[in-house]
Design a binder for these strands. Sequence first.
DNA 1: CCACCCATGTAAAGAGTTACATGATTAC
DNA 2: GTAATCATGTAACTCTTTACATGGGTGG
Lengths: 181, 181
Amino acid sequence: MSLELTILGLLSWNPQSGYDLKKSFSAVEFIPWSGNNNQIYRTLLRLHSEGLVDSQITQPESGPAKKIYTLTEKGYTSLKAQLLGAPELEQVKNTFLIQLAFAEILETRLILQLLEDYCTQITERKVLLTEEFRRAEGYPGRSERETLIWTRITDRRLESLDNEKKWAESLMEELKETFHE
Amino acid sequence: MSLELTILGLLSWNPQSGYDLKKSFSAVEFIPWSGNNNQIYRTLLRLHSEGLVDSQITQPESGPAKKIYTLTEKGYTSLKAQLLGAPELEQVKNTFLIQLAFAEILETRLILQLLEDYCTQITERKVLLTEEFRRAEGYPGRSERETLIWTRITDRRLESLDNEKKWAESLMEELKETFHE
DNA sequence: CCACCCATGTAAAGAGTTACATGATTAC
DNA sequence: GTAATCATGTAACTCTTTACATGGGTGG
């Protein structure tokens, strides 16, 4: 379960509460979970029972009390071990491809419309991502090496979207040329 | 749930049993489910109770009896509606990116090793995929349009893997140049 | 006072996987 | 006869999401 890895990783940057983690989850695009309460709070309780994190309730000057989690020695060791685990290939779930794959019973103009809609989705997503990445750019306290890695990761996400859009567009062209009208 | 769409789609090609569907699931790479018994048989029973499929037990000349499912009129209509549903963007779950993202606590040589391993994984996957796609190439009874779409989909899968590998390799180069030794 | 954000948690349900149970047929 | 494959299904579990419950603080 790499949700655990993500939590340990975020805590290795700085101690924070479940609520903070939740925000981090939804702020980092390539974290593939919604960052819902249930999973985060329950995982934190489990990690605490396993001794990978410590928690301390603090009362900020204003606002409600927070339960701040920190990595323990054991948690740090576990994080390192998980970071060194064998890399897995990405899993892609693209239900649009399935729509396309069985679209033989649709007229060509409808398939073209689907591809068009798909491109629109990609464009909208790119705008959101670009904005998110721009905000994260000036993240303070990162080493040069870490900055390089994060930049390359975010670049790659945008590049993937571009490639997907180009692919859809070229498929549209081919369909139009050969099967339209 | 687009597992339903996949089953309806496969049945629109030809009537088949749960066992056949299971094989189809694992044979088509971009179907993102394992094709486990539980999901397929239970979905078939549900689709039957909803009147989207009919089933008929047949006794082949040799081998055990099969429960062959066919699309009903209602099932065909539902398939068409689902094919026309708004396209969704692909969801990518790449836990390796998360490993990389929090790898700041590792030495550069270890990060390079991870990237190397990732590339190896990609290469292995590409060999498998190429073989799978080669086998599927001569699928009979496909229209020219359908063949085009399937070819483009499979091409795109291989292209994505290539891009991912190129990305990892160029990141390795950058890390080596700037941070190694 | 009401709506919204901060903050921690739980309930219920859906989605997906692995493993199990059963039985017939085929291949060695 | 025994191992593998064909074939249908169930059990148990994990993972993930949406929604709910609770309570304090802040801004209009």
